[in-house]
């Protein structure tokens, strides 16, 4: 029973950051810019956040809780800033969007690794490639957390999980209920219609890609806080691609994507707990770690045929074309 409860707790702690990254992917793709760069965005966002957290805990007397929130905000900004590079390549320079995504990922890994060792050398005198983070505090909801099994949902919650839920709601509202969201979806489905209705396709897309980077950055920061307890190149574990896969099952819609991400989280944590339950040596965790990836492939086999990506995704907007 204990195993199932920790599966739920850990699964949510992984699934929700994954969801916010997938949400980032949705925002970019719905606006018509193919986004394989989620991996790079989340890493860069986490890098900026972790950098700020390290500096703040070194130079200021702020508590670790405030630092956590500031780091997440910094991750949002850092991710958005880095994403503007992808936006620039895809929208201004008409580069191939898949290539641009790959380029952004490669550059992200290289840049953050290089900068981390430079900054560490500058701050601490040793060029290590990681920023150690304070572990985040966790809390439990009284009463609700006492329910057997399902109470695990309310136990040992990371503060960012609540934040992600709030953001998820807000961005759902932004996408489906506001003028900006309408423009965003239009520029992904039929950019010429948006143009003739007086919208600005390029600006809408640019903003969406930046938002996408910001959201992915938050996801990366949360993973750095929960899974790794540090920022290091090991943040590039491929979770950004996992988020893209989740987005594809979710058919580019926010609510289904949410459930897919939670499912991924539970599957991953479940595999890990299964390994513990069967009392296998820690070597075997390597095998169980493949579960989310294999699941992704298997599910894609069933769902890819029916998927409907935004119609204009991947095509640079050309005013003169009809």
């Amino acid at each position: 029973m204990n195993y199932i409860e920790s599966m739920i707790t850990d699964g949510l702690a992984f699934g929700l950051p994954l969801f916010i990254m997938a949400l980032g992917g949705i925002f970019s793709e719905k606006s018509g810019v193919t986004n394989l760069a989620v991996e790079g965005f989340q890493g860069f966002g986490a890098f900026v956040g972790a950098f700020l957290a390290t500096v703040l805990s070194l130079k200021t007397p702020l508590g670790s809780q405030i630092i956590l929130y500031l780091a997440i905000a910094a991750a949002f900004l850092g991710g958005a800033l880095y994403a503007s590079l992808h936006a620039l390549l895809c929208i201004r320079f008409d580069a191939d969007q898949v290539i641009s995504g790959v380029v952004i990922n490669i550059l992200g890994v290289a840049l953050t690794t290089f900068l981390t060792s430079q900054i560490n050398g500058f701050l601490f005198g040793n060029a290590s490639n990681k920023f150690i983070l304070d572990s985040s505090f966790r809390f439990s909801v009284p009463l609700l957390s006492n329910i057997p099994i399902l109470g695990a949902v309310f136990r040992n919650i990371y503060p960012f999980e609540i934040l992600i839920l709030i953001l998820g709601l807000y961005f759902w509202y932004l996408m489906y209920k506001t003028r900006f969201g309408m423009h965003l979806r239009a520029s992904g489905e039929n950019p010429h219609a948006l143009d003739s209705a007086g919208g600005n396709v390029r600006r809408t897309r640019f903003l969406s890609v930046m938002l996408s980077g910001g959201l992915s950055g938050i996801g990366g920061m949360c993973i750095a806080y929960s899974l790794l307890l540090q920022y290091s190149p090991s943040i590039y574990l491929g979770y950004g691609y996992l988020a893209i896969a989740a987005m594809i099952f979710g058919n580019w819609n926010i609510v289904p994507t949410f459930f897919v991400c939670i499912f991924f989280g539970l599957a991953r944590a479940g595999g890990y707990q299964l390994c513990l339950f069967m009392k296998l040596s820690s070597r075997y965790t390597d095998l169980f770690m493949t579960i989310p990836y294999i699941l992704t492939l298997v599910l894609l086999v069933f769902f890819s045929k029916r998927s409907h990506p935004p119609r204009a995704a991947g095509q640079p907007y050309d005013k003169g074309e009809r």
Binding site: G238, Y241, T290, Y293, L297, L300, S304
Partner: peptide, 25 residues
């Protein structure tokens, strides 16, 4: 199955990396 090759190859990459890692270790 219309699976985008970028996603499938990345997934296969990680699977291979973990499985070979397990055997080597």
């Amino acid at each position: 199955f219309n699976i985008h090759e970028v996603v499938s190859t990345i997934m296969i990459n990680y699977i291979i990396s973990y499985v070979t890692g397990f055997y080597i270790n």
